[in-house]
Amino acid sequence: MSSFAFSEAVRIGHVGVGRWGLNLLRNTAALPGAEVVAVCDRRDPALAAAARLAPGARAVRDVDALLADAAVEAVVVAVETPLHYEVALAALEAGKHVFVEKPLAQTAAEAERLVREARERGLRLMVGHLLRYHPAFRHVERLAADGALGEIRYVHSMRVNLGVVRDRENAFDSLAPHDLAVAQALLPGRPVAVAAQGQAFLQPGVEDVVFATVTYEGGQIAHLHCSWLDPHKVRRTTVVGSEKMATVDDMEPAEKVRVYDKGIDPSAEAGYASFAGALTVRSGDIVVPRIAPAEPLRLEVEEFVASVREGRPALTDGDDGLAVVRVLEAARRSLAEGGARVEIP
């Protein structure tokens, strides 16, 4: 733990207040346990919008000026993905606790450096794996942890839409971190290999659609479909267990989670000529649990502030972010090799 003496409210500096950065700022500025003391962006309109959310914060255009401010205890990094590593490393080297939007970095080597730097300096490092704070996903995660779904066999996620098209990261790098973070929370063991196929239709070298299968130590798999070139907006995850199955559909306005008492069981009767004949399909009730609504982003920034104040790792700490980056990096290699299976170190 850092030896830095904290005030009652954690004093935060925000680096990057674009569209998503403003969402983060809106939630951070509203937290009772946090005080936004500085905001950094190179664009005047962004700083003007930030001033309306955090009127008492000092506005700067140079990130070094924010990091040199002794009043800043922790930093929220919401810049473009290629800059995550550079800004986060500078913040850690300046002795600040760091929250980084997903992904933690673009390469495993960069992510490992950030994790190591935070550990050696006794600082908190957290990554914005937002779905881990979504009440619907938290509910399914608890069901899995309690054994209510049985042994989790596979996870299937579909995250598609028409836009936003990016030019510095492909659809998998942009969209998959959400679902990879959920999969690694639900599936036992670590991911050991990935095979990914995709195609770049709009821009050379930037895949607009990707289908990927991640294999885990126990033989479980996670299958991901990511695209920004699709007529539908779908945000759906299916979790298949040996006892029950669950779906999370984030596009549903109210009934986001459904739990299915469905499965295939060995028959108690003897005398079947084949293994398939000795199995029975079970189709029971469908339960729609009542889940109290809460804004995931608010819960996420609350966790960051709490981890800083309490001197403990966050739910989605640097190691969690590193594990996702390793899969992303292996998936890029697989895409380049035409879908070949690539081992994850």
Score class of each variant (00 low, 15 high):
G311Y: 12
F275Q: 11
E300S: 08
V288N: 11
V308Q: 04
E303V: 06
Y272K: 07
T280C: 08
R309P: 06
G311W: 09
A306R: 12
E302D: 08
L297W: 06
A273Q: 13
P313A: 02
V301W: 04
V301R: 01
L299W: 00
V281I: 14
I286F: 05
G284E: 09
R282V: 15
E302N: 06
A276P: 13
A294S: 03
G311C: 12
Y272R: 11
L297Q: 05
P296F: 02
L299F: 01
E303I: 03
A294Q: 00
A276D: 15
S307D: 08
I291M: 00
G311M: 12
S283F: 15
A278F: 06
A306E: 12
V301H: 11
R298K: 12
V305D: 02
V308I: 14
R312V: 10
P293C: 06
R309I: 10
A292E: 13
A273I: 10
S307Q: 04
R309V: 12
L279S: 08
R312Q: 07
I291P: 00
E295K: 01
P289G: 03
Y272Q: 12
S274N: 13
T280Y: 07
S307V: 11
E310I: 09
P313D: 00
A273V: 15
L297K: 03
P296M: 01
A292L: 06
P296S: 04
P296W: 05
G284H: 06
Y272H: 14
G311F: 08
S283G: 08
V301K: 01
L297A: 05
V288Q: 07
L279M: 13
A292Q: 08
S307Y: 04
I286P: 10
D285Y: 01
L299P: 00
E295G: 01
S283R: 15
I286K: 10
V305F: 04
G284C: 09
V288I: 15
I286H: 04
I291H: 00
R298C: 02
S307F: 01
P296L: 05
L299Y: 00
V305Q: 03
P293M: 04
D285G: 06
F304L: 11
P296C: 02
L279P: 09
A276T: 15
G284I: 07
V308Y: 04
E310W: 05
I286C: 15
V281C: 09
I286E: 14
S307N: 08
V308S: 03
L299G: 02
E300Y: 05
E302A: 03
R298W: 04
